[in-house]
Design a protein around this nucleic acid. Structure first.
Lengths: 236, 236
DNA sequence: CGGTTTCAGTGAACGGTGTTTACAAGAGTT
DNA sequence: AACTCTTGTAAACACCGTTCACTGAAACCG
């Protein structure tokens, strides 16, 4: 049984409906359609009532971003779990494909979360998703630590910091990483992989490839091949 | 002297002021601040007057996108011309740096043009900029055609089409390209370079790197090094 | 020159938006 | 039963895109 009082249950229910309505409006008609009055209309209430739940329209949009990130994370985890091959390379590939698939299926959400020149947005949420996914995957790839190139010294400071962030993320899963498996060269390639992954997906979602690509999926696959090879995963 | 009548001159002047006001609003306060009424206020006229110049708010935004693309193109050309080293690799590097610098200096414009899930937007404008820049640069790099890797057969169709687009773009400059210098492997790397260039710049502008990068420029430089090496330019 | 057309700009209006305020009415508490 | 806390309302304000009837001056023409 729920410990919450009747009022608390009703409030939670209304808040859920608000988020749901906001999400539906975003998906159906884009960011500009996520209007306090439109949301209220969907719930059969008036706009000012929403101020009992959110301080402003902006705050509601921020919440929407967090919800989107959480949903995306769930989708990525699901696709990751669906990959039953023991191979780590396959898992990485599965997650990357899931990210592309999610972005193409949710262009409005993608644009809101990943392409707004705003301060925090869903930054925290997303960062954790990336770390939760990338960290353990890299960690589990112990046998492919032959990547040991030198990276420019100027990058060391940032890469060491990211190394620590990754180590902490993995530690929450109860795994400890050796410097050998998580060397700076690999860290660098992880960042570069995120650049390419994001670049391809954003270009595809926003239609900004320099020419019409009839079927971008093979190009994405080809890019993944090189990414995985760069990062030190065996082909497969 | 101008052939235009007095009325035509005044109209052109007003139109220029409209674009200028719209641009200022975008830069100062973001996309949502580019309002017909706010523009009119800046010109000392009323909002409906703007309908004598643009069919709708949307049409005005589209024009704004075109203006931004044109300005960016001018900035890139200027930075390209400023590079007096004869080396093609240096020119490519200069243009890439110019693109990053422009994006960081104009985040709102970048977001509007490059990160909206809309149909054409400034697509034509931008595409031409990319082609005008990339085509001649690749063409002039005749001695570095040692890149001749195999690309997946599924990509051939698209790459051949892009090859033709590039060839046409270069032809307008009076240069004819041999298949040897513009082979599919190189074409593929050009596309991949655009993915990485766009990915890095967008991530930096939108603050979506998975960790705080204290000084992204060296990372950008490092990426350029690999890009140029992939594409077949000599180090320099 | 006088008459007519063209056209940039106005003011009022409509329905939409975020937000604030004062107020009502029910739920929970004592 | 009396009181408080919470959730909603209605009205209002200022802003938005857009339309429409209208004005006044510039441009054109006989």
């Amino acid at each position: 049984m729920t410990e919450a009082t009747r009022r608390e249950r009703l409030r939670a229910e209304t808040e859920r409906e608000i988020r749901q309505a906001a999400r539906a409006l975003l998906v159906e008609s884009g960011r500009d359609a996520v209007t306090l009055r439109a949301i209220a209309r969907k719930l059969g209430i008036t706009a000012p009532a929403l101020y009992r739940y959110y301080d402003s329209h902006d705050a509601l949009l921020r919440q929407l971003c967090d919800d989107i990130c959480a949903d995306m994370a769930a989708a990525l985890y699901a696709d990751l779990a669906a990959d039953t091959s023991g191979q780590v390379g396959c898992k990485v590939r599965a997650v990357c494909h899931a990210f592309r698939r999610w972005a193409l299926a949710h262009p409005q959400e993608f644009a809101l979360v990943f392409a707004s020149p705003r301060d925090p947005l869903g930054a925290d949420q997303f960062g954790s998703v990336f770390l939760q996914l990338a960290g353990p995957l890299i960690a589990s790839n112990e046998d492919a630590n032959h990547v040991h190139e030198e990276v420019p010294a100027v990058l060391h400071e940032d890469l060491v910091r990211f190394q620590q962030v990754l180590r902490d993320a993995v530690a929450e899963h109860g795994v400890t990483l050796a410097d050998e498996v998580l060397n700076l060269g690999k860290i660098y390639h992880v960042v570069q992989s995120w650049v390419r992954l994001y670049g391809h997906v954003a270009l595809e979602v926003f239609g900004r490839f320099p020419f019409a690509v009839s079927n971008p999926e093979p190009m994405f696959d080809s890019m993944l091949d090189q990414m995985l090879s760069d990062i030190g995963f065996d082909e497969g």
